[in-house]
């Protein structure tokens, strides 16, 4: 009885949820169902694909390393210390995540390009950054760092301050507190941040195109290879897309575990 009386509620809920779900599923499904195994293989053997795969893997891993190594101390500072400038700095480090990629490209060129702020100085010393693999890494670090920083900062901030204080009273230096208490307790948040940052770096397109260019084997990452092959050989574009979708799905699926761990950890520290 009650169910029949609420049919408009359940019906409306199902309809709206189903419509959006279908809309989001359809493009992803299209990537897979319109491509046979043979075509996938043909696409994969396109000469642009292998170098792009390799370059993407190399550059994103270097970027991730830079982000985690330099970002973890910054996140610790932002999460555990509150100074007059905290809010400004936090806003600043989030900025690249919401900036249009084209803006990021222009900004990077003006900073590191041959006539840029730092770039002109580097050029005098014979170092050219723009339109090289290094430029790919810089673009990725610039746009992906905020994803790591946000998650890592939140993880450090949510630590129980009393545990850190107790560790100090037990004779631990600030460094030991960081390595033995702070880092292990914040690990789930750091892992989530690193994975999100890596996914963002892998998907980087606009800033790379403007600042690093589109040279096969040197600056042509997977997303740029999609862009290039899209007109000449759709199967190659599609093959790379399939790889990226599988990787992205894999990351999100694996991350759901640390996310649960995070929720459990938060629960424990509240008890």
């Amino acid at each position: 009885m009650a169910r029949r009386r609420n049919w408009w509620w359940w019906g409306g809920l199902g309809f709206s949820a189903g419509t959006l779900l279908l809309f989001m599923l359809l493009p992803v499904a299209a990537l897979f169902v319109t491509l046979g195994a043979e075509e996938l293989w043909a696409g994969m053997s396109h000469p642009a694909v292998a170098p792009a795969l390799w370059l993407s893997l190399k550059t994103t891993l270097v970027s991730l390393g830079i982000i985690v190594l330099l970002g973890t101390p910054l996140a610790w500072l932002l999460g555990r210390h509150h100074g007059r400038w905290s809010r400004w700095i936090e806003t600043l480090v989030r900025l690249p995540a919401v900036l249009p990629p084209a803006v990021a490209g222009v900004a990077l060129l003006l900073a590191f390009g041959r006539r840029g702020l730092l770039g002109s100085w580097l050029a005098e010393m014979g170092v050219t950054v723009a339109f090289s693999s290094a430029a790919v890494v810089l673009s990725q670090v610039f746009v992906a760092a905020p994803f790591f920083l946000q998650s890592a900062t939140a993880a450090f901030r949510s630590l129980d301050g009393d545990q850190l204080t107790v560790a100090r009273t037990l004779g631990a230096s600030p460094a030991r507190v960081f390595f033995e208490i702070g880092l292990p307790l914040a690990r789930p948040g750091l892992i989530v941040g690193a994975a999100m940052g890596w996914a963002r770096a892998l998907g980087e397109f606009g800033a790379t195109l403007m600042f690093a260019g589109n040279l096969t084997g040197e600056t042509q990452t997977m997303t740029l290879a999609i862009y290039t092959t899209f007109e000449s050989d759709l199967r190659a574009a599609q093959a790379i897309s399939v790889i990226l979708v599988v990787v992205a799905f894999g990351i999100l699926y694996l991350l759901s575990a640390p996310a649960e761990q995070l929720a459990r950890a938060a629960h424990e520290s509240r008890d």
Binding site: D162, Q163, R168, T169, G171, A265, S269
Partner: peptide, 28 residues
């Protein structure tokens, strides 16, 4: 703080939850 040698028991005890009880006590 690390040189004051004051034993501190905070309100909710703040045991290091990633360590066993033994490692908690051996920490200092």
């Amino acid at each position: 703080p690390e040189e004051r040698r004051l034993g501190y028991v905070p309100q909710r005890y703040a045991l290091f939850r990633h360590m066993t009880v033994l490692r908690n006590v051996a920490f200092g």
